[in-house]
């Protein structure tokens, strides 16, 4: 249970997809002009990550890793197909995205209409492939943890795009130097937010601490995080109310 909690907060705040490793920056910059579209894309990313990371974990475990084919029989135990992992992962992601698109269109047209245009884009979102590759590189030990990793890094990405969309809606009323308008200022704000997120690095102190100590700090800190999140959420709401009022 503890390792789940630790991985959850670690992937949201410390190894945040956007602020720590810059994944999914293209769609992060392109689709963050309005909070409502940002929410749609963010939700789609969480969903697809939650599906593809566990699937790719299974692929990695039973097909690609060194000796993973041992379950076929002892004569296959020496095979190491890990050089194929890029092509296998991206094929899984592309097919899953198409499948998810078809299924969602059939069973939930309302959800399809809100996510619709973003789903095909997601196949080439680096955050999705990055999720699977980091899952492989960090050697996540179990299927449950892989699912957890997919969902929580998706939530981290969601938070990041939500925050930048809210800031960009606000910044329209500020007097930014013309050459920086639009893209330039977004980069700089993201950089500053990234520096802020670096401070979460002190949240989990790593494996060297005794388990009891890490237990307490994790729980206490996580409460603080929740409060901060609620603050961020209420800020976003305030922004969208302003928008409505202005209209």
């Amino acid at each position: 249970m503890l390792e789940h909690l630790e991985l959850f907060f670690k992937s949201i705040f410390i190894d945040n997809m956007v602020f720590a490793v810059f994944l999914g920056m293209c769609s992060y910059l392109a689709v963050s002009k309005k909070v409502s579209t940002a929410v749609g894309l963010g939700a789609a990313v969480i969903f697809v990550l939650a599906v593809t990371v566990p699937l790719n974990w299974l692929l990695d475990q039973y097909l690609l890793q060194d000796g993973a084919l041992a379950w076929l029989g002892p004569e296959y135990a020496d095979y190491n197909l890990s050089f194929l992992s890029f092509i296998m992962f991206i094929a899984t992601i592309a097919t899953m995205v198409q499948l998810v698109e078809i299924v969602v269109e059939k069973f939930s047209p309302a959800l399809y209409n809100s996510l619709g245009i973003f789903l095909p884009l997601i196949a080439v979102n680096c955050a999705i492939l990055g999720g699977s590759l980091f899952m492989q590189a960090r050697e996540i030990p179990s299927l449950g943890l892989a699912l957890n990793y997919g969902i929580s890094s998706g939530i981290g990405w969601f938070l990041a795009i939500l925050a930048i969309a809210a800031i960009r809606e606000k910044i329209r009323y500020s007097n930014v130097p013309p050459p920086l308008r639009g893209l330039g200022i977004t980069f700089i704000i993201t950089g500053l937010m990234g520096i802020g997120f670096q401070s979460f690095g002190g949240m989990l102190t790593g494996d060297n601490e005794p388990p009891e100590g890490t237990d307490n700090t994790t729980v206490e800190k996580s409460k603080e995080e929740k409060e901060i999140n609620e603050e961020i959420d209420s800020d976003d709401k305030a922004v969208s109310y302003n928008e409505v009022l202005n209209k």
């Binding site: 490793v21 050459p179 980069f187 950089g191 500053l192």
Partner: peptide
């Protein structure tokens, strides 16, 4: 890592 973003921001500033 976040410094890279700020450097890109400045490159964009200079270019534009």
């Amino acid at each position: 890592p976040p410094a890279a973003l700020i450097v890109v921001g400045i490159i964009i500033w200079v270019q534009r």
